[in-house]
């Protein structure tokens, strides 16, 4: 949404009544930007913004968009193997939503002056990152339920504060995304509830999937605040509203009771209620594994990227064909009109 075409008009820049020196003008713009951020106002695409703010947003929003579309892959693998028509229809709807979320986010990033193709190129050449969680395999059907419950649950935790992000188009995209994510989490949890009413083998599948995904979901919130040097700036700019550690704690606190209702255990011997803090304490996260996966050495990094690139390349004929068709139709209409 909000194309740069709408927001960066053609032609000569508007005449300014007084020609100020560049640095003076810059300082005034910066002051106006800071004042708006301090007043918890919103920045829109046509507004002046510091270059670093723009760059950070492009990186954050495009990474988020990449995560949505790469996230279609681990679940897409299960569409043809869903255990019933109902579950298949639900899974197709969910995967389709993820594609939609990618589109909302790419559109928001495009308002900052980067093109869709530039972003795809960065993803396909490995320059851009996406959420590391999608570099793990979905080994059995229970994984699909656990992704809905835990992975989407963690994503919602992360995304709800972003609905109040200082950059308007990103915030609006997040509102839309969050509404739909709620369906994702609930369908996953409900699917697991169903399995937990089944045979011992089905219950074991759920527990196994929870064991494999739990720690990876905790890592999704990013490094501890102490090791997250850019967090403070993000907070200052209103593009990060809660710290990584606060979000992680919130997620743990929300999830423990859900696990109890479901009848599964969470694979953490240090998990216990802390009366004094009013929160659940939990054990140490393996950050070496997290960084190893971020840096390209997770179990599925290569496969995910290769699948994505293949889909893009295999679709080239269609994209070209549609453009050629449009050109031909336009020519025909013009000839008829002449």
């Amino acid at each position: 949404m909000y194309t740069q075409a709408m927001d960066i008009p053609d032609g000569q820049p508007a005449l300014k009544p007084v020609a100020r020196t560049a640095s003076e003008a810059e300082a005034a713009l910066q002051a106006r930007f800071d004042a708006r951020i301090d007043a918890d106002g919103r920045i829109e695409p046509q507004d002046w913004m510091p270059e670093a703010y723009r760059k950070t947003l492009v990186r954050q929003i495009s990474q988020h968009a990449h995560s949505e579309i790469v996230g279609m892959l681990p679940e897409g693998n299960w569409i043809s193997r869903a255990p019933s028509l109902k579950r298949k229809a639900i899974l197709i709807a969910k995967v389709q939503d993820e594609g939609g979320h990618g589109l909302y986010l790419y559109s928001a990033a495009e308002t900052l002056g980067t093109s869709r193709d530039q972003m795809f190129d960065a993803l396909h050449t490995g320059k851009a990152k996406y959420s590391s969680i999608f570099n793990y395999p979905t080994l059995n059907w229970a994984d699909v339920g656990v992704i809905g419950w835990l992975v989407d649950g963690a994503a919602i935790m992360n995304q709800i504060p972003l609905c109040r992000c200082s950059y308007g188009p990103y915030a609006r995209a997040m509102v839309r995304v969050c509404k739909e994510e709620s369906f994702h989490q609930r369908q996953g949890y409900e699917s697991l509830l169903q399995m937990m009413k089944g045979t011992q083998a089905q219950k074991d599948m759920v527990q196994d999937a929870v064991n494999r995904w739990w720690w990876k979901c905790l890592a999704m919130f990013g490094p501890p605040d102490a090791d997250s040097p850019n967090s403070a700036q993000g907070m200052r700019w209103g593009i990060k509203r809660m710290s990584n550690d606060d979000l992680r704690q919130k997620f743990v606190d929300a999830t423990v009771p859900q696990a109890q209702v479901l009848g599964v255990t969470l694979p953490d011997p240090d998990l216990k209620w802390n009366e004094e803090r009013g929160h659940w304490d939990f054990g140490a996260i393996d950050w070496d594994e997290f960084w190893n996966t971020v840096n390209g050495n997770g179990p599925c990094n290569k496969e995910r990227l290769a699948t994505r690139v293949k889909a893009w390349n295999d679709g080239a004929w269609l994209r070209e064909g549609a453009l050629a068709h449009e050109a031909k139709q336009r020519e025909r209409t013009m000839k008829e009109a002449a």
Binding site: L103, R176, A322
Partner: peptide, 28 residues
Amino acid sequence: KEWPLWEVFIRSKQGLEHKHCGSLHAAD
């Protein structure tokens, strides 16, 4: 080249105005 960009406006129900809701790329 990229498919051109379009802005999308949706009327949520009869009697209400069309409202801008987002954009997308499409050939025509």
